[in-house]
């Protein structure tokens, strides 16, 4: 079988990105998965073991002194070297901040078509086909390329895991042209957040809108999320008003989620918000305005006041699980 490359992002703190599991699972479906990493130092044994447990039979390490200081360029060089060495059938990359920039730069190098934001991939009649869900899932699009595709995969879209493997490491030095790369001066790490699940790939999401009126009141959204074991989301209006950080924004220009349960609290449901959540399996909406468009997509809607109903919900859910 041919090789399928996966760009595994390793944070500056040495953590393997969550996207690695799903990417390696898709790669294993298409061929022999190879994890490509760009680091400055030799890989620690536990990192190699972890990549093997995620399904990588081979790890291709591009070593560069610029890794960690040059923006994205070391990953591009590692991928380009791995493509040249292994002639893969496809390259899979997370549709993350670093991932898509690396994918784009690699594609120019190799003259490859890029299929973006895939939620699934499959091999069919000798071609690799990417399935995308666009505009909030209003359309499902299959696309392919002539020649080796570079595919970016939506974070959180893949549930499966690849069979475990024992990873063999190949290390090659790669050279980064410093003049063509941005420079990373320092990191501002987000505080280690609570045990609350992150929005991407969450099974349950509770989102709040402008209806909460203040950042203090928005705590009600968090209380219900914690009672349900859900991630916290927000509408753009709530983010613009400063009730919730921008990273929680669900919608056209924020995060797209497809959880089992989506609870929209005080969210009117503008078309841009629905684009980020309407593929949820079950949608619950609570809003004072009986005509709010969110009710058009809700499986269960309550016309009422979030300030009355949400505390009752929290109590009732806690009582059940007690």
């Amino acid at each position: 079988m041919s090789h399928v490359l996966v760009l595994v992002e390793i944070s500056h703190r040495g953590h393997i990105a969550d996207s690695a599991r799903g990417l390696l699972a898709l790669a294993a479906r298409l061929g022999d998965p190879v994890a490509v990493v760009a680091t400055r130092e030799p890989l620690a044994d536990d990192v190699v073991a972890k990549l093997g447990s995620l399904g990588a039979a081979q790890v291709y390490q591009g070593r560069s002194d610029a890794a960690g200081t040059a923006l994205v360029a070391p990953q591009v060089e590692a991928l380009a070297a791995a493509v040249a060495a292994l002639s893969p059938a496809a390259v899979l990359v997370s549709h993350s901040y670093d991932g898509r920039e690396a994918a784009a730069r690699l594609a120019v190098r190799t003259g490859s078509g890029v299929l973006v934001d895939a939620v699934n991939v499959r091999a069919e009649d000798g071609r690799i086909i990417a399935n995308g869900s666009i505009w909030g899932g209003n359309y499902l699009v299959d696309s392919a390329t002539t020649g080796m595709p570079v595919i970016t995969v939506r974070p959180g879209a893949v549930d499966e895991s690849a069979p475990q493997a024992s990873a063999q490491v190949t290390a090659e030095s790669v050279t980064v042209d410093a003049a063509t790369a941005g420079v990373i001066d320092s990191y501002n790490d987000a505080p280690e957040v609570s045990e609350r699940p992150s929005l991407l790939g969450a099974k349950k999401v509770v989102s709040g809108g402008r209806g909460f009126g203040s950042k203090e009141n928005f705590a009600l959204v968090e209380q219900l999320a914690d009672a349900l074991g859900a991630a916290v989301g927000a509408s753009r209006a709530a983010v613009d008003a400063g009730y919730s950080p921008q990273t929680t924004q669900v919608g056209q220009t924020g995060v797209s989620v497809s959880p089992d349960l989506y609870v929209a609290l005080g969210i009117s449901g503008a078309i841009q918000h629905r684009a980020g959540m309407q593929t949820a399996k079950t949608i619950v909406a609570i809003n004072k305005d009986a005509d709010a468009p969110i009710f058009e997509v809700a499986d269960f809607g309550i016309v009422g006041d979030v300030f009355t109903i949400v505390p009752q919900l929290v109590e009732a859910i806690k009582a059940r699980s007690a």
Partner: peptide
């Protein structure tokens, strides 16, 4: 970035 921001 995924885990915060970087000064670049």
């Amino acid at each position: 970035g995924d885990d915060g921001t970087a000064n670049v």
